[in-house]
Simulated assay, not measured.
Amino acid sequence: MNVEVLKTKLLFQLTVEEFLFLLSIDNKTNEKIIETTPSTLNNKYVYGIRGIQNLLGCSRSTANRMKKSGIINDAIIQNSRKIIVNADMALELIKEHNKNNK
């Protein structure tokens, strides 16, 4: 796709494919940006109780209970009030815990 031609089009005239292509390029160099998705990263981290909450899709109180239960302790790094959780490891630990408790 020719970037200069696409830049001259009005936004509503772009197809979804053209729009996504324009979003994925660096405007200064017109080179495609390497996308980093969770699958390309080795470890994904979430931060704080809100991070646990978003990771598990649960309420704040459930996230607190999960942290205090000790199930995901190996995935948690905590220094004072700062909480860092290795998301992949936490999900594996929860899966393992659920498998063992059936």
Rank of each mutant, 00 (worst) to 15 (best):
E17F: 15
E17L: 13
E17Q: 15
E17T: 15
E18G: 05
F19H: 10
F19W: 11
F19C: 09
L20I: 12
L20D: 09
L20K: 15
L20N: 13
L20Q: 13
F21N: 09
F21L: 14
F21I: 14
F21M: 14
F21T: 14
F21A: 12
L22R: 03
L23Q: 13
I25L: 03
I25C: 03
D26E: 15
D26Q: 09
D26F: 07
D26Y: 06
N27I: 13
N27E: 10
N27F: 13
N27K: 13
N27D: 08
N27Y: 13
N27S: 09
K28P: 01
K28M: 04
K28T: 09
T29G: 03
T29F: 03
T29D: 04
T29E: 05
T29A: 04
N30I: 10
E31F: 13
K32Y: 09
I33N: 13
I33H: 09
I34F: 11
I34H: 11
E35W: 14
T36K: 14
T37F: 11
T37H: 07
S39D: 05
T40I: 05
T40D: 05
L41E: 07
N42F: 11
N42E: 13
N42I: 12
K44P: 03
K44Q: 10
K44N: 08
Y45F: 15
Y45A: 06
Y45K: 12
V46C: 03
V46L: 00
V46S: 00
V46G: 01
V46H: 01
Y47G: 00
Y47I: 12
G48W: 09
I49R: 05
I49Y: 07
R50I: 09
G51R: 01
I52S: 02
I52D: 00
I52W: 00
N54S: 11
L55R: 05
L55A: 08
L56C: 08
L56D: 02
L56M: 12
L56I: 09
G57Y: 10
C58M: 09
C58I: 15
S59M: 02
S59I: 05
S59C: 05
S61C: 07
S61N: 11
S61F: 10
T62A: 02
A63K: 04
A63H: 07
N64M: 03
R65L: 05
R65I: 05
R65A: 05
M66G: 05
K67C: 00
K68M: 01
K68W: 03
S69Q: 07
S69G: 06
S69M: 04
I71T: 15
I71W: 04
I72W: 03
I72F: 02
N73E: 11
A75C: 08
A75F: 08
I76L: 02
I76K: 01
I76A: 02
I76Q: 02
I76V: 12
I77F: 11
I77P: 00
I77L: 05
I77G: 02
Q78D: 02
S80P: 06
S80L: 12
S80C: 11
S80R: 15
R81E: 00
R81Q: 06
K82S: 04
K82L: 07
I83K: 01
I84M: 02
I84D: 00
N86E: 08
N86S: 09
N86V: 11
N86T: 12
N86P: 12
A87V: 08
A87K: 07
A87Y: 06
A87H: 07
A87Q: 08
